[in-house]
């Protein structure tokens, strides 16, 4: 299979890779770019553990082809903190014990950031539906919702 050459931006840095035409972006990130923060929980877009943004849009990276991201901007969990300064969502997830095993956490954080960008002051119901594409089997979501509420409050300066 002839490889596809792709130039893109990952977490603000230029990145280039050659991938198979049928290779998911998730595999490119994990196997070619060494960014293993996005996880494969299902490979069928049902669990959200591979969530990243492409040009600001939340996607399951297992459902996007590597070949599709030519010239686009990809944001992954590895780019969420600003140097040694955690994003408020990251900090609140730790403070609220909103993770147990942590495998779903990168996906939740990316999805929650995308949600708060669209809606800075979501209700509990809006948070629950906004994060319904991400599966967590450990927490029962209670502490995740509280962490997002608290982060949203802080980010609004409320």
């Amino acid at each position: 299979m002839a490889g596809v050459h792709v130039s893109t931006t990952v977490n603000g840095d230029p990145a280039e890779f050659v991938c198979d035409p049928d290779e998911p972006l998730l595999d490119v990130l994990r196997n070619r770019l060494g960014l293993t923060g996005a996880k494969e929980g299902c490979g069928t877009g049902d669990c959200g553990a591979c969530s990243v943004t492409v040009d600001g849009e939340l996607v399951c990276s297992c459902l996007v082809l590597g070949a599709e991201v030519e010239g686009r901007k990809i944001e992954t969990i590895e780019g969420m903190a600003d140097g040694d300064k955690l994003h408020p969502l990251q900090r609140k997830f730790i403070e609220h014990a909103a993770l147990q095993c942590g495998i779903c956490t990168p996906g939740f954080l990316i999805a929650a950031r995308a949600l708060l960008k669209k809606n800075a002051n979501p209700t509990e119901e809006e948070i629950r539906f906004g994060l319904a594409g991400n599966l967590c089997r450990c927490t029962g979501y209670d502490k995740i919702v509280r962490a997002v509420q608290d982060a949203a409050r802080e980010m609004r300066g409320a």
Binding site: T36, I94, T105
Partner: peptide, 20 residues
């Protein structure tokens, strides 16, 4: 209720799981 020691790795994508 202190912060867990593996928290930072898990919110930054650094924590290494089976396939990582």
């Amino acid at each position: 209720r202190p912060l867990r020691p593996d928290g930072l790795d898990k919110v930054t994508g650094r924590a290494r799981y089976g396939a990582d």
